[in-house]
Simulated scan of single mutants.
Amino acid sequence: MRTLAGIGDEAGPSAAEQIAAVTGLGWTAIELRTVDGTALADLDDAAFDAVAAAVAGHGLDVVCVDSRIGDWSSEITDDFSRDLDELRVLARRCALLGTRYVRVMSYPNAGLPPAEWERRVRRRLRELADRAGQADLVLLHENCAGWAGADAERMLTLVGDGLGLLFDTGNGVAYGYSGVDLLAEIVAHVRHVHVKDGVPGPVWTLPGDGAADVAGALALLAAHGYTGALSLEPHLSLRPHERDGVPGDASGFHAAGIALEALLAACPAGA
């Protein structure tokens, strides 16, 4: 059986709501991004310690933490020291949470010529990956915002010590490409998976009800021996990049989890 997890704030803002949603599905793992609307790296020590204690107290493994490094809220010309500071904080907190994985992206452009954009992205991610490796962490680049967000060849040039790939099943719907076709090119380097589904717009749906071919992605992962976690990120209520202030929804999260389990049960490759 694969590890099933969920990005907790998709189910609710508080740690209690996030934990209840994951354990309510009978799952034993969680992915952390924000708590009470605050990024994990920005929580004060007391608040973070309370989250870590609650997660451990319910016997949950933390499969990944989602940073803001290089994501849709940033640009390549932003102050790099902010990202180094976030990684420094997360390195300490990941050690306490028992996880090595930190989600990153590859910096949206800010009007730079393509070659200069690439040069800066690659330099930043290499320095971040080197520092992550020194802290026994692995950065996971997601197929989302930034220089390598939708390009398999670019993603593969980033892979190395301290940096692997995170595949999100639904991001192709949002960015206008076939997620399964992209996955076929990068599957050997995928270390973690986010599960969502939707139709162009995008409008997000339960896994299996949209145009992302989640079932095909799951079958391809299984056929290539993927043994990492599948982490639910349904976007049915909370959509962080839209900054709309709508909190996560436990009922939608639960329905999406049941739909994911049904897809796995029907997966011909025995996922």
Rank of each mutant, 00 (worst) to 15 (best):
G149Y: 07
E31K: 08
A184E: 14
R100P: 10
E185S: 15
T3D: 07
A269W: 09
A21E: 08
L232M: 09
A215I: 02
S74E: 08
A39L: 05
R92Y: 00
A39W: 14
D85G: 10
L60K: 10
T28D: 15
L25W: 05
A217G: 11
A211L: 06
T169D: 04
E10G: 00
A135K: 03
G252D: 05
M105V: 02
D42L: 13
G12T: 07
S73Y: 04
D79A: 13
Y101K: 07
G172K: 11
Y101C: 08
A50W: 00
R122L: 11
L128N: 05
I186V: 15
H58W: 03
A269F: 02
S178I: 03
A56E: 05
I76R: 02
D9I: 15
V180K: 05
H241T: 02
C94M: 06
M105N: 14
H254C: 08
V246W: 09
V173T: 13
Q18N: 13
V199A: 09
P207K: 02
L87Y: 09
G208N: 11
P13V: 01
A53Y: 04
A129S: 15
P202S: 06
A150Y: 00
I7R: 11
S14V: 06
T38C: 09
R123A: 14
V62Q: 08
V214L: 08
D130H: 10
R33L: 04
E142A: 12
F167R: 11
G208Y: 13
D66T: 10
L264R: 14
L125S: 02
L60E: 08
R239M: 14
Y107C: 00
H58M: 05
F80E: 15
T157F: 00
D78C: 09
S231V: 07
L263M: 07
L166N: 05
A212S: 14
S251E: 15
G59Q: 09
E242H: 12
H58P: 01
E75F: 06
A47P: 07
R100H: 15
V35P: 04
L218H: 11
G26H: 10
G162S: 07
A110Q: 06
G176I: 04
R68H: 01
S237D: 08
D249A: 14
W147H: 00
A50H: 09
G270L: 08
I30S: 06
D181I: 03
L87M: 05
C267M: 06
S67C: 12
S237P: 06
D209S: 13
L128P: 07
G252P: 07
